[in-house]
Structure formats: C-alpha cells, structure tokens
Design a binder for these strands. Structure first.
Lengths: 198, 198
DNA sequence: CATGAAGTGGGACAGTCGACCCAGTCGACC
DNA sequence: GGTCGACTGGGTCGACTGTCCCACTTCATG
C-alpha cells in the first residue's frame, strides 16, 4: 500500500467514517468498519487517531462545518418575502432528498453528542450556528422584499431552524414528498406573516 | 427472588429498558444493563423475550402508545385560535421539561427504528398517529374559536408536528427555556394565521 | 404428598469491540 | 548507499456483547 501522510489519512478516515455512519448508523461505525471502508489496516487508524472518540469528535466538527455551507441560503432572488422563504425551504428540501442518509447521519451525530458532557458543546455550537445563519438569511430576505420583522429576527430564525429539523425528521420517516412540499409552502407562508410590508 | 409470571416480567423489563435508554441512550441498553435495572438475572431476560430485538420492538410500540396519551391536546379552553394553539404548545413544552430524557429516548428510538427495514413501519405509524392527533386537535380548536382553516388541516397538522419535533431537538441541545417559549409563541401566532375567523 | 411445569441462577459460549504492540518496510535526506 | 523516522500489516489483548444451557427451586394441581 502506498504511503500516505498522517494528515491525509485522518481526513480519509473521516470521510470513510461519514460514509459508514450514513449507510449503517453510528452504532455500526466501528474502527474496523471505518478502516475497511477506507481500505486501510487497523493499525493505520490508531496511528492517525489516538482513539475512536477522537475521530468521532473530528467527524462532528467537520460535518457541521460542511453542512453550514450546503444549507446556507444563498442569493435571495426577487419576489415577496413568502416566495423567498419558500424557495429557501425548497432548496434545503432538495438538499435533503439528494442525500437523505447524510441528514440522517447529522441527526444521529447530534444525538450522539448530546449523550456525553464533553461533546454536548459541539451540538450547542452547531445549533447556534444554524440559528445565526438563518437569522442572517432572514434579514437579507426582509431587506430584499422591503419588509420589516415584527417578531425579533432571532426568534423567527429559531422557528425556522426548528421547523427545518422537524421537516427533516418527518420526511425521513415517511418519505412523502408531496406532503413535505405542501408543509414547506404553508410554513413559508406562516413565517412570512411575521413581517410587515414597509 | 419471588416468582413473577412472564407477562409481568415482560412489562417490568420494558420499563427497565426505557429507564436505561432514557438515562444512557439506546447504545447502552444492553441485556445486562436492562436486567440489572430490573433487578433480575440474565436468564430471566431470555425467558421473557426471545431476543433483545424483540424487547426493543415492544419498547417502541409501548412508548409510542404512551406518548400519544401524554401529548394529546386535551380540552380546548375559551380564547382565540392563537391562544388555544399556544397553550397546547406550552403544555407539550412542560411535558418535555418535566422529563427531557424521555423525549430524548423517543427520538433515539425513532432513529433506531429508521435504521432497520423491519422496524421502519413502527416509525411511520408513530408519525402518522402524531399527525392524526394534531389534526383532530386543530379541528377542535378551530371549532372552539369559531374559525375555519384556509390551509388543509392535514397540512397544518404536519407543520405542527414538524415544528414540535424541531422545538424538542433544539431545546434538548441548548436548554434555553426563554427562547423556546418565545419560539412557541411566535409559531402559535403564525399557525393561527392559517385560519380565517368565521 | 407427588409431580410436572413455570420460573430462576450462574456459568459458559462464540463473536466483536477498542486498543495496542512490534517487527518490518518504505522514502527522504545525509 | 546508509540511516533514521514515518508508516504499515498482522496478530493479540482483555472487556463486553447477545444468547444459550442446565441444574435448581418454587408452586398449583392431582
């Protein structure tokens, strides 16, 4: 086997771990399953990481960072507030449908982090980041649609994050695309009513 | 040790398993941890259940059934639609705060069910039940507040379920009571705007 | 009181887990 | 070309897992 510097090996293992968690869940993400997915020997694992926990921690931070970029609601097109929000939700929904296992893995990793005191802050940071992103997007949306939020933007952002999470979980369970779209439509409408036209 | 009929032993083991899952997560709910919690020997486990999987299945169905009753939005007091919905959300939030570990266990069990094809239907049935309960409550609320839903009630119900799930997850992560209440307030307001006064 | 089924205890099984060890190999540099 | 440190493969460790087994006790029934 070709020789690979430790740094690359670490990220290769993290990618492999993410694939394993996505496919089979975190419980099945054993050191052996991960190195098999990465095509390495068991020794390489403990050469690159001190422990499985260390890899999981790094996996969580990596994956959260990536999720930010994927979910970040980019350019706000013309249209009223409702349309902007709905297109953002649709964008997320397409992201979810494109790789359901990845979002399921995200949820599992969050809950995994919730179970140990040392890892809990990772989950807190993750959700704080989501809320901040949503807040920023909502402010941009209001500006673009020439509206002002009647409710504090931070609160609207939390509603949006909570709703997005719930939408994810619900869809992962029943995989009902039409229902999810209808729900996103209704939710976008409802959220947009938290602002007044200016 | 006194002799206990198998039926009682099954339910005792299920209760014990629920406590273990709540406290330490489903990954730690080993046969030994469960029997220790129940104060039984390992043999009693496999006398009452054929396998650990069988117990987990029964645990999920039991716990879903119970959750229905706990979350079921009972009597709708006087007040407008927004107030009724918000009080329902508050009621659920108090339920969540009273036993956070239980709700966390519910989420874990759902995700666990999602991971195996045989158990997936359990999760589907669970969410269908939640949606039906929400729908029924929303219809009662509209009647009480003398309003009509502009959006299909089934859709509103799904919005509510998704939002509730998301609220749970968010609060489990950051334990921010004030934020959760503000979010519930805003969400109740938004959802109530999906109906027209009659 | 005998008997057989229901229930119990403790030990054992094979398999898997995370972690580790060490002899060996490779590649860059002197 | 030799040497040193980075890297690798394979084997092994003790702990823990779900499951099973079997001798034993208890109790309702005859």
């Amino acid at each position: 086997m070709t020789r690979i510097p430790a740094a690359e090996r670490r990220s290769a293992l993290i990618e492999a771990a993410l694939r394993v968690v996505s496919r089979h869940g975190i419980a099945q993400a054993t050191t052996r399953a991960i190195v098999a997915e990465a095509g390495m020997s068991l020794a390489s694992f403990h050469y690159a990481f001190d422990s499985r926990d260390e890899l999981i921690d790094e996996l969580i931070t990596t994956v959260v960072e990536r999720e930010q970029q994927a979910v970040i609601p980019d350019v706000v097109p013309g249209g009223d507030l409702r349309e902007i929000i709905e297109s953002g939700l649709h964008r997320y929904f397409e992201h979810l449908k494109a790789d359901p296992e990845h979002e399921q893995a995200m949820l599992e990793l969050t809950q995994y982090a919730l179970r140990s005191p040392e890892r809990h802050p990772l989950a807190v940071a993750q959700y704080a980041r989501y809320a901040a992103l949503a807040e920023q997007a909502l402010e941009a949306a209001a500006t673009s649609a020439d509206a002002t939020w009647r409710v504090p933007v931070a609160t609207v952002a939390r509603v949006l994050v909570a709703f997005t999470d719930g939408l994810t979980l619900t869809w992962l369970v029943d995989r009902d695309d039409d229902a999810a779209r209808a729900v996103a439509h209704a939710a976008a409408d409802a959220v947009s009513r938290m602002a007044d036209a200016r």
